[in-house]
Design a protein around this nucleic acid. Structure first.
Lengths: 211, 211
DNA sequence: TAGATTGTTAATCGATTAACAATC
DNA sequence: TAGATTGTTAATCGATTAACAATC
């Protein structure tokens, strides 16, 4: 039960969503219990690693039995912070921003896009699934009047740093960045990047490294 | 110059796109040379690590001088396999698939979406920036008649495994997967995943771990 | 109780950092 | 040549794996 008995390493953090996905799948399939070795087999990890990882957060298992799937799902939901709602705004209502707004899947998990912002007059005033696109000039006053947790950057890379700074100056401390650039921000701001092109480059590297 | 003097670790591979991004930026800004310590400062890495990483692929530097930026860009382009063209098809012409088709940036880097496929009759027959959406039933004959390198999966997660197997059965060996699931395929198939929800979960973890 | 499987400590492995001779 | 910085070897650090006592 004791959290933070040791520092949770970056490697462990990167595996957490994968654990969550596999455990939810097991739960959906009506599986009641799972051992570290069964789960390891499925996920391509060693049983040892799984037990080490889980014990960063607490002793969730029972000797001789394994882990209760439903219980473990709940624990992971808490660990990942998925037991609450998050309000988001998206800056940049182009292709990607619109795709995110159109995707209804995030809402089921508690992530709500409350508004979008852009500089393009053709987009301003439009709405997508009820999500309005506002002029980015209205961002500051919008954020002042609403509770927004996460700022999502979907602008071209040239604007990303500027937008990130704007968001931070409005008090937003958590940023999900889709622009292919590393934004530089104060240490207390948390940035999570989705670098599509990096991912594609890695695929290409492997294509060529194989031969 | 000798490649593969040692096996290139996963950790190094994940850093390659970042090196490429920073080096291209330096080149764009007209910077001629860079030392490992300068680059390290910018990227938040140690000079030692950069020299180790680079020397997985060859001795690109010159003692007392550092690295020639333009030369290093060329080397990284080759290492990543960005010195050629890739033809892609997208399966799943929903939000995300359409966003990828609308994004013209990939073409500038040599990635061409040649066609899209879907099961939805409302989408079949449409075209996006000249990219046609075909019935997925026509995928096999299409791939047989065209040279396609990469298959991109933008379907809901329920269909992803099936689509992946279809692509592989058509001879496609390289897959860029956006569905939030780990597809299981033969060992000689290379899969690169973009798990948006995993990324969002990690952001949430950090939001909650902070407090 | 006996069998199974955890939680945890110890051993191993690999990645990062430090140091320095080589050399431009 | 002297100064700078690489390429590379050695030392350190951290993550993964193995082992096993604890215990359900």
């Amino acid at each position: 039960m004791e959290r933070d008995r040791r520092r949770v390493s970056e490697a462990v953090i990167r595996r957490l969503p994968k654990y969550y996905r596999y455990l939810m799948e097991l739960k959906k399939n009506g599986v009641q219990r799972v051992s570290s070795s069964e789960l390891g087999q499925k996920m391509g990890l060693t049983a040892s690693q799984i037990r080490q990882d889980f014990n960063c957060f607490g002793g969730f298992g029972q000797q001789g039995y394994g882990y209760n799937v439903a219980e473990l799902c709940e624990e992971f939901k808490k660990i990942l912070g998925l037991d609450r709602q998050y309000n988001m705004i998206v800056v940049g209502a182009g292709n990607l921003g619109q795709a995110l707004a159109n995707y209804s899947g995030f809402e089921k998990e508690g992530f709500f896009i409350k508004a979008m912002f852009d500089v393009n007059p053709r987009l301003i005033g439009m709405s997508i699934r009820g999500i309005e696109i506002y002029d980015v000039d209205n961002l500051r006053s919008y954020v002042a009047s609403q509770h927004i947790d996460i700022g999502v950057i979907c602008t071209p890379k040239e604007k990303a740093q500027e937008v990130a700074e704007l968001l931070v100056s409005c008090g937003i401390k958590y940023i999900w960045n889709f622009a292919p650039i590393d934004v530089v921000l104060p240490d207390d701001v948390i940035v999570e990047n989705v670098h599509l092109s990096d991912s594609l480059y890695i695929l290409c590297y492997r294509i060529n490294a194989k031969s």
